[in-house]
């Protein structure tokens, strides 16, 4: 039963959060949503509500005060979800790496699916990254909707869901 996958693929809603960026990538996301680059032709629409979103666009190296809000927003987005890191400083910390109050990239806090480089990331790259994110969203959606056996089901879902994956990864790092 793959009932929801086509709908998710055709209308991925975007949640945009600024975790300490310089605004450069944010205005490029606005420009990409505008008429010239027209990100909305993929069905994407910018929404302010995490509970209705599929794709999480994050800009900026995570600052000390925005990290709780970042994780909070991430946990409020329903599965399946895809996280896209827009800009060099979101990927690695970029020019802000090692500064006071900066946490050097978002993958210390939430699992990232697509990294978009560039300072500031150009609208072409943002569109490219979003198309990649759509493919990942489709596979994740199919994995969730696949029928499964009753016994051993918890283990099987656990490997599919990204949040539990992250938990395993953190434990592995500690060892």
């Amino acid at each position: 039963m793959k009932f929801f996958t086509p709908f998710r693929k055709k209308s991925p809603w975007i949640l945009h959060y600024n975790a300490g960026s310089c605004n450069g990538c944010d205005i490029e996301i606005l420009a990409a949503l505008g008429p010239k680059f027209d990100l909305e032709r993929f069905g994407a629409i910018n929404t302010g509500n995490p509970k209705q979103s599929d794709i999480f666009l994050v800009t900026g190296p995570v600052t000390y005060r925005s990290r709780e809000r970042l994780v909070e927003l991430y946990t409020q987005i329903p599965e399946p979800k895809v996280v896209v890191a827009v800009g060099s400083c979101t990927d690695t910390g970029g020019v802000f790496r090692g500064m006071l109050n900066v946490e050097d990239g978002i993958d210390r806090y939430i699992p990232v699916d697509v990294y978009i480089p560039g300072c500031a990331a150009s609208p072409q790259l943002i569109i490219d990254g979003l198309v990649k994110a759509l493919e990942i969203l489709e596979t994740k959606s199919k994995a969730i909707e696949k029928p499964f056996k009753l016994f051993g089901a918890v283990q099987m879902i656990g490997t599919k869901l990204s949040r539990l994956n992250m938990a395993q990864r953190v434990r592995h790092d500690e060892n």
Binding site: G20, R65, S66, C89, F96, M99, L100, N101
Partner: peptide, 26 residues
């Protein structure tokens, strides 16, 4: 204060004066 990154401090600790012009642009 949600996006405080400490640029002013970094300009006087991490970067030389020729680089600071590109840092403050950020």
């Amino acid at each position: 204060g949600f996006v405080h990154r400490g640029v002013e401090l970094a300009c006087t600790r991490k970067f030389e004066f020729k680089q600071v012009g590109y840092v403050v642009a950020r």
